[in-house]
Amino acid sequence: MTDRMFAELKPAALDELTEEAYRRRRSADLARAFASPRPAPRRRSRRPFLLLAGTVAAGLTAAATVVALSGESAAPRPPTPTPLAAQPVSPRSFLLAAATTAMREPATSGRYWYVRERTSYRVQSLPSDYQAKIKALVQEQKRTEERLKGDSDGLAAAKKEFERKVTELKMAELPYLAFAADTRESWRAMKQGEPGRTVSNQDVAVTFGSPADEAAWQAAGSPKLVDEEARTRVDDTERVLSIDNPSLTLQNLSALPGAKDTLKRKLDALWQSSPNTANADKNGYLWQTAVDLMTAPLQPGTRSALFEALADQPGITSQGQATDTLGRTGVALSAPTAHTITVRLIIDSETAELLQYEMWDRERPMLKVTLEQMGWSDTLGERPKG
């Protein structure tokens, strides 16, 4: 799962100073932010699932699968109701069908792994104010650490107080509802040492919860809510898959096992060694890591084994059809975790590709990411063909 999704749940740290960390740590109340769907991009044509007879309600041939993770017995209901199918899909059968589809796909490769994603979120604070206050807190913490040097108990207490203040700052909200969305494209080089490219903050859009919210923003002087300038970064850093899996990179994903039981043992070992094991139960970690892997270039066998491993997880229930921000229909599934966080995945039933994921905290939506295109490109800056 992308770092900005779950960084909201992790302790604050000094990397709050960076703009990218600021983006990752914004909580996002996404209700009403997705009223204007974007045109659906073309996707590669693949063979459809071989679903078992009686498993899927009629009319779901072109549907997708939505997986929701929650610490509660039932997934939270979104503020804007999502259409649901009258006859829910069998979660296990659907995931096993996805495994069959994934296994039949040919192995592919390329010079760059390309991902284009559209992220929508609530604007929690004014960027300039937030970063100025964070910098002030960091400077204060540095002075405190210098003064308490050698006092381990005092340093521990000071660190705890610093994190409390940062959390308090993060939880602050504007006196009006404002929402933002932007697009990010990345070309990640598969060859170690070769530069990749990320173009972020494209097509920035700001909307308001109501005319009254927009009027309140105008009354406050119409402050700048987001940075609207696109940014391009080129570097040759070998990037990890996620903060939960620092040992996994795009370069070593091909070494992951292609058999279900072996992959489950590998994922268990990764969970045990994860720096965030204390903050994530095993079942929750598996689903979070599944999102990371679904947006990466896995071998067909590994991708198939991942779906089989998910199908074995207890507590998954079907909730029927749902619709993503591009208007594509999906089938809602839910699975419990130790947290109140709910993650929804939308998986295309013809290709077994991840189309969208969302994060909710009980009834409070936080983040929604639509994967507009993924695939291989052999030229930096060019999108995949087809």
Score class of each variant (00 low, 15 high):
residue 108 T to S: 04
residue 27 S to K: 12
residue 120 S to G: 12
residue 274 S to N: 10
residue 93 S to G: 12
residue 335 A to R: 01
residue 218 Q to M: 05
residue 96 L to H: 03
residue 142 K to L: 15
residue 383 R to C: 02
residue 181 A to M: 08
residue 345 L to P: 02
residue 298 L to A: 06
residue 355 L to V: 01
residue 98 A to G: 14
residue 255 A to K: 12
residue 97 A to L: 04
residue 170 K to A: 08
residue 124 Q to T: 12
residue 231 R to Q: 14
residue 11 P to M: 12
residue 137 L to D: 10
residue 88 P to G: 08
residue 143 R to N: 07
residue 34 F to T: 11
residue 281 D to A: 12
residue 23 R to W: 15
residue 353 E to L: 09
residue 333 L to Y: 07
residue 195 P to A: 10
residue 123 V to G: 03
residue 372 E to Q: 13
residue 264 K to H: 07
residue 311 A to K: 00
residue 376 W to E: 09
residue 297 P to V: 09
residue 14 L to Q: 05
residue 361 D to Y: 05
residue 244 D to T: 13
residue 183 T to Y: 08
residue 381 G to Y: 00
residue 381 G to F: 10
residue 101 T to W: 01
residue 355 L to Q: 14
residue 168 E to V: 11
residue 222 S to P: 06
residue 188 R to N: 04
residue 333 L to P: 05
residue 291 V to H: 01
residue 13 A to D: 08
residue 207 T to V: 02
residue 247 S to R: 04
residue 335 A to G: 10
residue 261 D to V: 01
residue 248 L to V: 06
residue 21 A to Y: 08
residue 312 D to R: 10
residue 17 L to P: 06
residue 374 M to C: 09
residue 63 A to K: 10
residue 159 K to H: 11
residue 195 P to M: 12
residue 213 D to K: 03
residue 267 L to Q: 03
residue 125 S to H: 11
residue 77 R to E: 15
residue 212 A to M: 03
residue 265 R to Q: 13
residue 374 M to Q: 12
residue 63 A to S: 15
residue 21 A to K: 01
residue 360 W to S: 02
residue 69 L to D: 10
residue 324 D to F: 02
residue 280 A to E: 10
residue 149 K to F: 12
residue 364 R to F: 11
residue 256 L to R: 11
residue 132 A to Q: 07
residue 108 T to Y: 05
residue 285 Y to C: 07
residue 296 A to M: 00
residue 328 R to N: 14
residue 213 D to E: 04
residue 98 A to L: 14
residue 92 R to W: 06
residue 223 P to Y: 11
residue 297 P to Y: 09
residue 270 L to P: 03
residue 265 R to K: 14
residue 45 S to F: 08
residue 372 E to M: 15
residue 113 W to C: 09
residue 142 K to Y: 09
residue 154 G to H: 07
residue 162 F to V: 07
residue 193 G to Y: 02
residue 319 Q to K: 15
residue 385 K to L: 11
residue 362 R to M: 00
residue 303 R to V: 05
residue 278 A to T: 08
residue 36 S to E: 13
residue 15 D to C: 04
residue 39 P to T: 03
residue 84 L to S: 15
residue 121 Y to A: 15
residue 300 P to Y: 03
residue 347 I to C: 11
residue 82 T to I: 03
residue 339 H to M: 05
residue 6 F to E: 08
residue 138 V to N: 10
residue 47 R to H: 09
residue 18 T to D: 13
residue 216 A to S: 11
residue 285 Y to S: 03
residue 310 L to S: 06
residue 94 F to P: 10
residue 257 P to C: 03
residue 226 V to I: 06
